[in-house]
């Protein structure tokens, strides 16, 4: 082989300007710009929107969706989906309340039991998907109904209420001036963002999503990874369930109904391809924040809830179109 054929120019280190430009036209960059524009626009409509108090309050409201969106990003990157997260959240809440009130568990133990049952629910999803080969969509659609039914059966449509004061610290309290659960979300985003971007686990997930067979043929333990992420999804839905109960002070079997769609919308808005293979935690979290701020900002500027969903749907489509356009231009250049 002659040198002429292999002799590629050695890539020089990119300048700061180039790096910045690269960041700006990335999926996340584009979305971030859309978010900034939306925030600035909403801020001109009402002076109630861009205040520290309001923004922190929105952070409180979006924590559950944000926490569940992290494993959902993992799962969608592998080309899967988990529709049962809302039901797992409900199941966790009910188990927490039921073990505490009916079985007389200490509240601490009830919390752990609740989260564990969520984790187990996710594990069962994973087990059937990996071992029996049920497609994730079918499996989690089935458990969406099953776990909800389980929650309703256990609760007998009764709510568990009257938790002690300390229980509300997580959902309603503050730490260093910031809603307690928001800390948890921030830490989770950083940790699991790095896990996805930098570790072997993250790399394996992208490989599985792009070409599961190829990943298997490269000696990656595909099944183990899939089992892990569905279990992880159950765990995070469980944690979200605990936070949710702590925030609204009661358990109901219909908790988290429909949250899976909010989560999936945010993840997809954040640039994760529903076909798998691409996506990132920063993108997802921008998606979560964007949807939450739009909801809140539009209400504050006098748009009613039914009109707000229309606007959010439009922004979702718009953002995806803009991103597709920019990404295809980037591919060419």
């Amino acid at each position: 082989m002659t040198d002429k054929k292999t002799g590629q120019p050695i890539p020089r280190n990119p300048t700061l300007g180039e790096k910045l430009r690269h960041l700006l036209i990335s999926q996340e960059g584009v979305l971030f710009v859309i978010m900034l524009v939306s925030v600035l626009f909403l801020a001109t409509r009402t002076d109630k929107f861009l205040t520290v108090d309001n923004l922190l309050q929105q952070g409180r409201f979006m924590t559950e969706v944000g926490l569940i969106a992290i494993p959902m990003t993992y799962i969608i990157i592998t080309g899967g989906i988990d529709l049962s997260v809302g039901s797992i959240l409900g199941l966790t809440a009910i188990v927490l309340g039921w073990t505490w009130q009916e079985l007389g568990f200490p509240l601490e133990l009830a919390i752990v039991t609740g989260i564990l049952s969520g984790t187990l629910a996710g594990f069962v999803n994973g087990l059937f998907i990996v071992r029996v080969g049920v497609p994730p969509l079918i499996m989690t659609l089935a458990t969406l109904a099953l776990y909800r039914g389980l929650a309703e059966g256990i609760s007998e449509a009764r709510s568990a209420r009257g938790y002690p004061e300390w229980f509300f610290q997580l959902g309603q309290g503050e730490f260093l001036g910031i809603p307690t659960q928001l800390w948890l979300l921030i830490i989770a985003v950083i940790v699991f963002g790095i896990v996805l971007a930098r570790t072997r686990l993250g790399r394996a997930l992208y490989a599985i999503g792009n070409n599961e067979l190829g990943a298997r043929f490269s000696g990656l333990t595909v099944n183990r990874h899939l089992l892990f992420i569905y279990t992880f999804s159950g765990f995070m839905a469980g944690v979200a369930g605990y936070i949710f109960v702590s925030r609204v002070s009661t358990t109901r079997s219909d908790m988290g109904t429909g949250i899976e769609l909010d989560v999936i919308a945010a993840v997809v808005l954040g640039g994760t391809s529903i076909f798998g293979g691409t996506g990132s935690i920063p993108g997802t979290i921008i998606g979560v924040v964007l949807i939450q701020l739009l909801k809140n900002g539009l209400t504050l500027s006098g748009v009613t809830s039914d009109a707000t969903i229309v606007v959010i749907g439009s922004v979702l489509i718009f953002a995806i179109l803009v991103n597709n356009f920019i990404q295809s231009r980037r591919e060419e250049s």
Binding site: T51, V248, T250, T257, N296, T299, S305
Partner: peptide
């Protein structure tokens, strides 16, 4: 949906109204 209702009320508190009329989806939540 209990959570959506909470968020709507919260936004109106921030926006500032003189009174809130409600029909609760959940008495405690």
């Amino acid at each position: 949906n209990i959570d959506d209702q909470i968020q709507v009320i919260d936004s109106y508190i921030t926006a500032g109204v003189d009174g809130i009329l409600f029909a609760a989806n959940d008495p405690v939540a």
